[in-house]
Design a protein around this nucleic acid. Structure first.
Lengths: 356, 356
DNA sequence: ATGAAAGCGCTAACAG
DNA sequence: CTGTTAGCGCTTTCAT
């Protein structure tokens, strides 16, 4: 009797067949069905036939909830990103998802909108779902209650973008300080002396702080006077960054180059400088950070520190899965991966010339 | 006895406390613990105290796997996007995640990289996880085996970006045809006559086809000769689009305006035209589709059909949750939501002048 | 090679 | 207000 594509209803509700109905249909025990599912070789060839037929007929699909409950594992990883509006996190997530799927892991996603209190809630949710591990970017990796929870609960996790300084926590990132140092040194080599940093709120991103340190180091090492960084609040979607750049109208108030803590900021700055009647790179050179793909599509192309976002995600997932699966074996290895960055040279930066 | 922050180990393995240990610790039955968790008012004030104390002491966290197995629901929705490299999908996902969290739903994510066979696998995975519903963008909403599976299994789903023509399937999108029509009509009003469409592979996106129909309609209605659309393969990351635009060197071969089926393509085209020595908008006007935020940051700003991606995601989630929760009540309402689009006017388009 | 049975964590009758 | 119990779907001994 062939019942393929025929659903079973009870009181209007569709009944999703379980291993139990399959067993009944095939005339075997549920254990046998389970065996076929998990270790096909352990059942005889003709029972296998019967069971497969029943599975087909009923449209059976294993229920991971039951499996996970039993196994105490979920083959699911949680991901916590600050936002998906910033391409870097989307790219990273893309890398995570791809690598996860290759390994038959699923991905549960949460976003925090850069709110530190939401980090905790996000992780709580993931823990309630019993994810096997978490990939996340936090506000401050060196003082994070959220990470402490993860440690205490001994849930494997890997930080992305965060580069913990004082603590030894598994992470995948570029060397933010060194990358910023390289970018600023590049500007200095081109003759720039008045270089200012434009950043989001420092308290919302430890990476921005590390990049600022790289800026400072480059300036000091070349005997240049660091300028006060410009800190703009988030949700400066419109030209609110505008008000922070007003001073630039006065040439003497204006840096010759602006080092931005991320590309979104860099692009906003370019637009707002333009609105102020200033030209990039002629009046101000712009250096970004992240290396988002779109930076290369514009004119002038954006100079930026390129970090391999998709790779970061992929490596984080691989590291996490390794940790999860070794955890069974006992010994945990904490690995901090620093991936190489590149200073991408684009048209938004030009050598400094005094007679401009 | 206070045991907060003290983990319980058995053979090196951490034991995550269950409702059972909490009950033991508090000296009540597991039912009481469950009640406190789900309906705090139904337990006496002092038992509540004891139980809460036990929960605190043990660091208990409810296990959704058990709960879900029992309930037959997961309070989780699955999302299937073609890719996260395209900002529109990331934005949409952002909208979904935000709205989901507000309603205490979790999000499980999968990507297909525009491979139709991966759509099926993605949905299978989500179904195995017993998600309560699915939000997805498919290659072709009118002939999708994946959607048929969803229908047959009676899993609530909502399409995003897809705008089914022949079938009546729940969806949230703009009116692609009308939007394209509006964009092209705008170009025509500006005096353009040789308008060509630049698209990704049509077979990979029903939206692109609908937009092409809008293009055709606008051209025909204004008695203009439609040009053969240019179809570029995906993963034209570098300047492969280049080869498709070579003909543009010859002014007589060149349209005065290019209507692109998405913004990524539009930006790539702008770059490649530039590389060809052509100026935008002076030599060729460019109209995009999607209205990605970055389009407004560049110079010239990108003219584009703006669709409210984050809203699309949010509304899809809301619709989905409504469906999920009404499903209990029986009657299903299939709703197709068409959200308003806007032709965003930017500097990449200028009126056509013959003496250029 | 197969079956019987226990139990993962939880909720919902049901009984008191 | 609280306890007892069954069972959601599955895997895994332990027998046979």
């Amino acid at each position: 009797m062939r019942r393929h594509d025929v659903n079973v209803y009870i009181n209007h509700y569709i009944v999703r067949p379980s291993i139990k109905q399959v067993a009944l249909e095939a005339g075997v025990s549920i254990a046998t069905v389970s065996r076929l599912l998990n270790n096909p070789d352990s059942v005889s060839i003709d029972t296998a036939g019967k069971v497969n037929q029943a599975i087909e007929a009923l449209g059976f699909r294993p229920n991971f909830t039951g499996r996970n409950l039993r196994a105490g594992r979920s083959r699911t990883v949680g991901v916590v990103v600050p936002t998906l509006s910033n391409t870097v996190f989307a790219q990273c997530l893309q890398g995570v998802e791809l690598a996860a799927r290759q390994r038959d892991y699923s991905v549960m996603l949460t976003a925090t909108e850069y709110r530190q209190q939401d980090e905790a809630a996000a992780v709580e949710l993931l823990l309630a779902h019993r994810v096997d591990g978490v990939i996340l970017t936090v506000t401050n990796a060196d003082a994070s209650a959220t990470l402490d929870v993860l440690e205490r609960e001994q849930i494997p996790y890997v930080l992305v973008y965060n580069q913990p300084q004082e603590s030894t926590r598994p992470s995948v990132s570029v060397d933010n300080r060194a990358a910023a140092y390289d970018a600023v040194t590049y500007l200095i080599r081109l003759g720039h002396q008045r270089i200012q940093m434009l950043a989001g709120q420092f308290h919302a991103s430890d990476r921005a702080i590390q990049r600022y340190h790289g800026y400072l180091q480059a300036m000091q090492q070349h005997n240049l006077v660091p300028l006060e960084p410009i800190e703009v609040p988030r949700h400066t979607n419109t030209s609110l960054a505008f008000e922070y750049l007003q001073a630039f109208r006065n040439p003497s108030q204006r840096p010759s180059a602006l080092f931005c803590s991320n590309d979104l900021l860099a692009l906003s700055a370019m637009r707002d400088l333009r609105a102020l009647g200033l030209r990039v790179p002629d009046d101000v050179s712009i250096m970004g950070f992240d290396g988002i793909p779109l930076g290369e599509l514009m004119e002038p192309t954006l100079s930026s520190v390129e970090q391999p976002s998709e790779q970061i995600g992929e490596l984080a997932l691989r590291t996490l899965v390794t940790t999860i699966e070794e955890q069974q074996g006992g010994h945990l290895v904490v690995a901090s991966h620093i991936l190489p960055h590149t200073v991408r040279i684009g048209g938004s930066v030009k050598p400094f010339t005094s007679h401009r």
